[in-house]
Design a protein around this nucleic acid. Structure first.
Lengths: 332, 332
DNA sequence: ACAGTTCACTTAATCCATTCAGCGAACGTG
DNA sequence: CACGTTCGCTGAATGGATTAAGTGAACTGT
């Protein structure tokens, strides 16, 4: 590749012996232009030879929008799932010609609007419900907002992480029910930042219980402390509860640890199932039964959502893979 | 804030009754311009009232560089530390007027160069050593490269994660030595992607052992499997080893779990110390002694590094806080 | 042979912020 | 009072890509 700092469309035009307009038409494959193959070849060759890449600022200025996809980082703690999603989404975005930029301004709406003004991103992906003022501004300025929380018109495709939480709870309970458990507890963090998901997962669990004619799920919040969790396990056992769905693997493993303090072991005294299938779940003692989230499929479909929202037909259809799968190990 | 899609400097100029040049001078506080306070006030008021924010594309086009800071995501698995750093760096960058964009193209050098060409970022932060061709291009095009691996001229300030790994190993061994351990094992992953860090941490451990006149550290690679790790613990004990530094908390907790399979417990049979101080370390059984990484200070100083590399004097001096601190719990 | 099309391009305007060069008025100095 | 300087501003150029509006030549149909 050429080492010269700046190669513009004009350079390519000069080398190819055509005008800058022609270069643009050829390189963007602008429809409705009649340009013979020979000329196209010359332009492409010149661009290749010079290592020409269009400068984003020029393009953005003209088009009124950049190639940035802004991901508003959720307020909740970045666990393994979000971390991994960042990596996958970055890759997915870049393979489609977008650049993923991160933003933390989900709560500061004025600042968010100001940032959208300057950046003029192609799309904003948010895991929050953004306020109407932002939606109004986005509409006026041509920024597409893709919410991963919103109710979708077509529930078959695309990504709705609230819906996904419900599936998780549903799956946990159905798995436990299959193993013969009927009195089930639900353990979730006392962290307000994850409240929405905790409630989603609990809701899925509750409804699965109802559908399966099980007694109502007992839900409990706790701080992440071994002793307290161990005590809870003892208490639950006294109430005849035989299995627990934990909000995620961290909590499941903490519960396992607390149980050990009181001489209890999974699945014998209390079966435990987590969610996220973190690396350490496989090496917990006992190895933790969990729910694996197909983040690759999530990321892929999310970028398809973005493209559709931008009016581009995705080149590869949505990944139909199941988003959540049970990973059965010893703890339940 | 105004809801109109596009407010340009010209709009502000019109409202304030001055020229676009004056608006730019006032809003950028351009030095060497004599503009009375009264006019400045008028311009600022107009900008405020209209909700004017300069459009990045225009600015970038003129200045030749954008406000993007491109972070080349490391090839290694995104653990809790990287995930958290992303969040902190995003925040830190945005508070200084930059936007953090992620890139995955650390290995594809042609693609990386092409991306730098289009994006014209202010700086690139990399955790790899980038090839010379990229450095040459960056120099020619005015992109600043901040490498988090490189040896620094002034070891007092700034961020060098390779140096940080060495500190981690050093700290682990000194802590164990203080508790009376002398024969120490080092456990690290068989994942090539973290090799550089594993070696750095081991090196720190080895040198601490030498400095303290301890016998040489025994290092071992393993897959993340309970049985194998348990067997290793047994083997080490037969060799008289009484304490183990693990590459990180995941491995430490897996080792703890493997030990339990063979009836061994920390710290009695084998003391175990991890690194990262993940959320679950506190609730492991026994609670895991670990090394906490001050990622806030890392991120802050890293952005200071970026600013200095860009020729801006950081408004707040480097955070002098210790980057690594021991969190003593029961496992060692 | 002449109007009407199509082809293969080019010209020039546009997006927005920044900044160099400069201009008229006021001020200061000898 | 003439000259130089500073003040307070403005005009116009600049950066790179896109695209509406053309232009001259070749071609088609009658």
């Amino acid at each position: 590749m050429n080492t010269q700092a700046k190669i513009t469309g004009a350079d390519v035009a000069r080398v190819a012996g055509v005008s800058r307009a022609t270069v643009s038409y050829v390189l963007n494959a602008t429809p409705g232009q009649s340009i013979p193959e020979e000329t196209r070849r010359k332009v492409k060759a010149a661009a290749e030879q010079l290592g020409y890449v269009p400068h984003m600022a020029g393009r953005t200025l003209r088009r009124g929008r950049s190639d940035l996809i802004v991901w508003i980082l959720p307020d909740w703690p970045i666990g393994s799932a979000v971390g991994e999603s960042i990596e996958l989404l970055t890759r997915e975005a870049s393979s489609r010609g977008f650049t993923l930029a991160m933003l933390n301004e989900g709560n500061d709406h004025n600042r968010l609007e100001a940032t959208l003004r300057t950046l003029a991103p192609a799309a904003v992906v948010s895991m929050h419900r953004l306020p109407d003022s932002i939606h109004r501004f986005a509409k006026a300025s041509g920024v597409t907002i893709v919410s991963m929380m919103g109710r979708r018109t077509d529930p078959e495709t695309g990504v709705d992480i609230l819906q996904a939480s419900i599936s998780v709870g549903d799956m946990q309970v159905r798995y436990l029910a299959e193993r013969g458990h009927s009195r089930i507890g639900y353990l979730y963090p006392d962290d307000v930042r994850v409240k929405e998901f905790a409630i989603g997962r609990y809701k899925g669990a509750r409804e699965a219980a109802k559908a399966l004619d099980l007694p109502a799920i007992r839900k409990r919040t706790m701080p992440l402390q071994r002793e307290r969790l161990g005590e809870l396990a003892v208490e639950w056992r006294e109430q005849g509860i035989t299995a627990v769905c934990a909000y995620n693997d961290e909590w499941a493993m903490a519960l396992l640890s607390g149980m050990r303090m009181f001489g209890l072991e999974a699945p014998h005294h209390l079966a435990v199932i987590g969610c996220d299938n973190v690396l350490t779940a496989a090496v917990a003692s006992p190895p933790l039964t969990s729910i694996d989230l197909n983040l690759l499929a999530y990321s892929f479909n999310m970028m398809n959502d973005v493209e559709r929202a931008l009016g581009i037909e995705p080149s590869t259809p949505d990944d139909p893979a199941a988003f959540e799968t049970i990973v059965a190990r010893e703890s339940a």
